[in-house]
Design a protein around this nucleic acid. Structure first.
Lengths: 247, 247
DNA sequence: GGCGAGATTATGTATAGACATATGGCCCCG
DNA sequence: CGGGGCCATATGTCTATACATAATCTCGCC
């Protein structure tokens, strides 16, 4: 008997494998909101009829989506789109505004400085690049309910993001702007702790010598550095929380 | 023909399903460092002989591990344990010994105190339980190349892990012991920063008032608390690194 | 020795069928 | 109307087999 790859498929396009196609189709519908959280996905039975494939193939696609926590499967009841992904979104989200508003607190933003300059040695090292180029350097502060929440010190590589030159970051924080304008493919975070020096303490309204949590995030798009940011949080009042499932 | 569940299995215990058993066996060997990054996992062919099951069953286990980025599969070459999973290595691994040895440093361990007691109010709150019960409280230190790496302060719920009562944690750190004896299903981490007080600074061989990174981890097995641990790392010399792919 | 073609092999995808298991719903009984 | 038990059903696991694909290895040719 012929393989599915040689048969017609409802929404064919390139041609990954069949199960991957099914997986992507469903994924797309979930991510675009066409199938909102709680929505019941068609039964395996219906999907296999739709794609004219065996149940194992459908099952493989759905199992992967379940492992990725996009859907939830319940015997006898069916398969459902999962509620929002709680958790380590803190680390995955490059957007502090979203982080604060999901906590139900009022977001505030203050631009402290913004400069356009040729990258110096320190800038190049932070971005992990070698050649000469222009960068934008920004420092700003994020507040939650009027209280300092985090200090941000960011570099943007203008060679990778030319559009940033014409953006003033007076109203929107650079993280949000970048998120909307430049999709990233890879990000690396380093978390460490420091004690606040006098200027940092002043900006965060904490005592000099208090502990701070530092998150340094580097973001790339296809191996090309986009931005490097250093976020300083008051250490004892802020906690990064992440939840994992084991097996 | 009889199902695999009715056949003998090499390292049987409770009895998840066969593929899950295979997955857990491999996972354990990776997380404990028995199979270090780069190690070639037995071929599907060998695993199916070992568990006397069909290739599809082995394949399902390996596919899930691959999706979780714990292993990497290469046609014709075989299946390999992936290189340090930064985040996953640090946050997902409840085993500091494995973390240090993957860094290529010599692991050292010192038990500082071990006590068995009835849980007091603070213990119950840390574990997130209400009723009376016995717990084991442990403090110990992990070293890398002879230098203090982290301080550990741990509570183990004896109701969930009765076997811990008969384990002395003189040679093996409790994290490793638990990993070998109690599979977890969920874990939550909270990361914060503190300044070292005098005893902490002394134990970590750093200056009083230096910044420290604190990781508090709670682990459950099917909604039942197993252990709560607080790890203190020297803050400026230690960085938690996490890398994400964007899609 | 260097190189390309082909054989080999491990994984990747897919099939059809079988039985296991959990559970939402229904029906019946009190 | 409430509760208990049974049944239908959707997912969960597993088998045995087949062919696809990619990469390594080998061998023979120049």
């Amino acid at each position: 008997m012929s393989l599915a790859a040689s048969r017609g498929r409802p929404e064919s396009s390139g041609r990954p494998t069949l199960y991957k196609q099914i997986r992507l189709d469903i994924e797309r519908r979930i991510l675009t909101g066409e199938w909102p959280p709680g929505h019941r996905i068609p039964f395996e039975h219906e999907i296999m009829a739709r794609y004219r494939c065996s149940r194992m193939t459908v099952n493989k696609a759905l199992s992967e989506l379940a492992q990725a926590d996009l859907i939830e499967r319940r015997r006898r009841a069916g398969t459902f789109v999962r509620r929002p992904q709680y958790l380590s979104a803190v680390l995955k989200t490059p957007d502090i505004r979203a982080e604060i508003t999901t906590l139900g607190r009022a977001y505030g933003y203050e631009l402290i400085s913004r400069a356009r300059r040729s990258a110096n040695a320190g800038d190049r090292e932070r971005l992990g690049v070698k050649g000469a180029r222009k960068v934008i350097a920004i420092t700003c502060r994020h507040n939650a309910d009027g209280v300092p929440f985090a200090l941000e010190d960011r570099l943007i590589d203008l060679e990778a993001v030319p559009g940033a030159a014409s953006a003033d970051f007076a109203a929107d924080p650079p993280g949000s702007w970048l998120l909307h304008h430049v999709p990233w493919t890879e990000a690396e975070h380093a978390i460490s702790a420091i004690v606040a020096d006098k200027p940092t303490a002043g900006a965060l309204d904490i005592a000099t010598g208090a502990a701070c949590l530092v998150i340094e995030r580097h973001t790339w798009r296809k191996a090309r550095p986009i931005t490097a940011v250093r976020l300083i949080y008051p250490g004892e009042s802020h906690r990064l929380v992440a939840r994992f499932k084991g097996s």
